[in-house]
Design a protein around this nucleic acid. Structure first.
Lengths: 227, 227
DNA sequence: ACTGGTTTAAGTCAAGGTGACCTTTAGCTA
DNA sequence: TAGCTAAAGGTCACCTTGACTTAAACCAGT
């Protein structure tokens, strides 16, 4: 029984996933999702938080963490029948530990690269990653978790770039602003402003108390093709 | 490692759940969700289908079946640490097996009764049932699974009564019809009609190919209170 | 054959959200 | 000062929604 983590962040306007290089067989030196065996007396949530700490040195309290799915194909692990429960974690672009620690093999990688086929992932981790991506896109549409990607405080533009990175297409800045600012509890104004290199200063916000987006952010029947 | 099944149906305009009476310790003679241990070489999906067959004699191919959540509290089973993966199954009001079989202890029971506290459920099955109910309500709003509750062919009124039973409040028949008939791929007309005891005959439909409701069925910000 | 009851089906309309687009504001830089 | 950029705010046609009304189709009772 193991847990595996699909940890997403947005860096350089691109959705990235945290991968480790496996140090042991099977799939030694192959890229994989962080994870490991569940210990006795531990819940799955606790195991996911522990692996997060051990393998990536990220602070789980700063991340949105939710159970994704259980994977149980008897052939999924050559060592034998090992069921894994995958977790989805969303968080801001956090610093990774420097070399020398357990988690030194952890790397951020664009999701498009990881799924591109150039470097296969260990086990069924590619399928898990695809499921995680699908869930994340759905969550952005129907909940306010997108704010979990933004280090506080953040601007409406920061939030919009999260959506654009995860969904893979541009949004109208004006309509996006109207939508998120009118959604009660999505954004909590701080009163502060951020002065960028160029352009008008932007108001800064914190995450609000709302968690559901009703109605969803997009009402169009389909995402643009080729996303 | 076990699987447990939250099997919902709508009978007598009420959402009901399939419960069994446990024959073994622990929680002997107590009501519980059907389920059992996963066998070697079996996926979780296969185990769920097998338990469905063994314990309820329902045909899994006629049901909508999806993974719900994994429950892992070390204290959830007095026999020791047993992780269970819960499945949600939605189906029409199917006949249950007669006495004499393995599944004779299976009974449909209104969800409101099962969660009412009058008869506690075994293990953490009350919490699992609550999660299943929440998921089912969400699914009805955002997908077309409600049709899985209806034996084919069915009428728009049949479908509306499903929503009313699961959500626990009345819907405007006229607006409901407009919504579902305009949703491409939700309903597939058969050309037939059903002649009820009283009232105008209703057109009969089959399930369409669509699976997502975009936008969701309700756009109101909240369900009526006290649902 | 008519009337009343019941359910399906279709129509009306004001209110409000959406998507596309435009204008103004506020800061920086050359 | 002009020019650039991004934020912030405004306009408007179109569509959906929710509440409501009207018509249609069938049955039962008189």
């Amino acid at each position: 029984m193991t847990v595996d983590l699909v940890i997403f962040t947005v860096r350089q306007d691109e959705l990235q996933v945290l991968l480790i290089e496996r140090g042991n067989e099977p799939y030694r030196r192959c890229a994989a999702l962080p994870g490991g065996f569940v210990r006795d007396g531990e819940t799955l949530d606790e195991a996911a938080l522990r692996e997060l700490r051990e393998e990536t040195a990220l602070d789980g309290r700063k991340l949105h963490l939710e159970q994704l799915h259980a994977y149980s194909d008897p052939e999924r692990d050559p060592r034998g029948r090992i069921i894994t429960v995958a977790y989805l974690a969303l968080g801001p672009d956090l610093p990774l530990p420097v070399a020398g620690t357990d988690a030194a093999a952890a790397r951020w990688m664009p999701v498009s690269t990881a799924l591109g086929g150039g470097m296969p992932l260990a086990f069924d981790h590619a399928a898990i990653l695809r499921d995680g991506l699908e869930r994340a896109r759905w969550q952005l549409e129907h909940t306010t978790v997108a704010a979990a990607f933004c280090p506080e405080p953040f601007t409406v533009g920061d939030l919009r770039r999260i959506y654009e990175a995860v969904w893979g297409f541009k949004l109208d800045p004006s309509n996006f602003r109207r939508k998120v600012t009118r959604t009660e509890g999505f954004l909590e104004p701080t009163g502060e402003r951020r002065f960028p290199e160029v352009g008008r200063p932007a108001a800064l916000y914190r995450r609000g108390v709302a968690s559901l987006l009703i109605p969803p952010l997009l009402r169009s029947s389909e995402f643009p093709v080729g996303r």
